[in-house]
């Protein structure tokens, strides 16, 4: 069984159809890249998978481990193992990163019927994980993403990914707002988390990110559909020739 199956998905936002029958299958352990020009519906897809309000699904379905994802609340999806790394992670003043991480991890564990972490056990786990990702401890004491640089925000997303251990990670334009060094650090974090059980869907506008996170499959999106899929060489082809050819195909 595929980990994620998106079948003929049609989505509207405020009366305007953004996705017109999108189909995508991701298996365990695979890395997929979704590329496409601005406005092709890449971010809409990631938001609908995560359960963001404001999108109306008018047709098709999304199955996650065979279950109907669209029937689940966002927090249920998270507990089942769906993780969206946000393009622009929000700042939450007054909520310490540590408190947020512990509350979120324990909420997911509780939803799965697992025991919650005690404070000492949690601290131990966070220290291990943040150390392996080279995340300084003082970042954890600050408010969630408050005053973080673009690179720090993305590393905080990677830290959460490592802590929550999802089976599907969707990285929405994780390269936006990052310089090359920050991009490399974030990508190294993602690569370290890739495993035979964990799939990654990397949404990006540019081929650049795929120098660091090497995909098994590349999809090209245009006007709300996947118009072409292929191996990693497809990304290079796009870089050379641009998206225009696919816009006609759509």
């Amino acid at each position: 069984m595929a980990l994620l199956e998106v079948k003929d998905l049609q989505v509207r936002v405020e009366e305007r159809e953004i996705l017109h029958g999108l189909t995508l299958t991701v298996n365990e352990g695979e890395i997929h890249a979704i590329m496409g020009p601005n406005g092709s519906g890449k971010s809409t897809l990631s938001h609908v998978i995560a359960g963001k309000p404001g999108y109306e699904v008018t047709g098709g379905q999304i199955l996650f481990k065979g279950e109907d994802l669209l029937e689940m609340k966002p927090e249920e999806r998270a507990a089942k193992g769906v993780f969206l790394a946000f393009q622009y992670p929000v700042e939450i003043p007054g909520v310490a990163t540590m408190t947020f991480l512990r509350t979120a991890l324990n909420a997911q564990r509780k939803a799965r019927g697992e025991s919650e972490y005690s404070t000492p056990d949690f601290l131990k786990k966070v220290r291990e994980v943040s150390k392996s990702l080279n995340i300084p401890q003082d970042m954890l004491k600050r408010g969630v993403n408050v005053g973080f640089s673009g690179g720090e925000k993305k590393r905080n997303e990677v830290l959460q990914m490592a802590l929550f251990e999802p089976s599907l990670c969707i990285l929405d334009e994780m390269d936006s707002g990052l310089d090359i060094d920050a991009l490399r650090i974030a990508a190294d974090g993602v690569n370290a988390l890739h495993s035979p059980k964990r799939a990654m869907v990397v949404i990006t506008h540019y081929q650049r990110l795929l120098n660091y996170i090497v995909p098994d499959v590349v999809h090209v999106m245009s006007k709300g559909r996947v118009v072409k899929s292929g191996g990693k060489e497809l990304a290079l082809e796009l870089e050379a020739s641009g998206y225009a050819q696919f816009e006609d195909a759509a």
Binding site: K52, P53, K73, E75, A79, I92, F100, A104, A107, F164
Partner: peptide, 14 residues
């Protein structure tokens, strides 16, 4: 709403 969604996407009930 954006902050609420971020927290829910991380597993926190409403």
């Amino acid at each position: 709403d954006n902050l609420l969604f971020y927290l829910k996407a991380r597993g926190l009930p409403e």
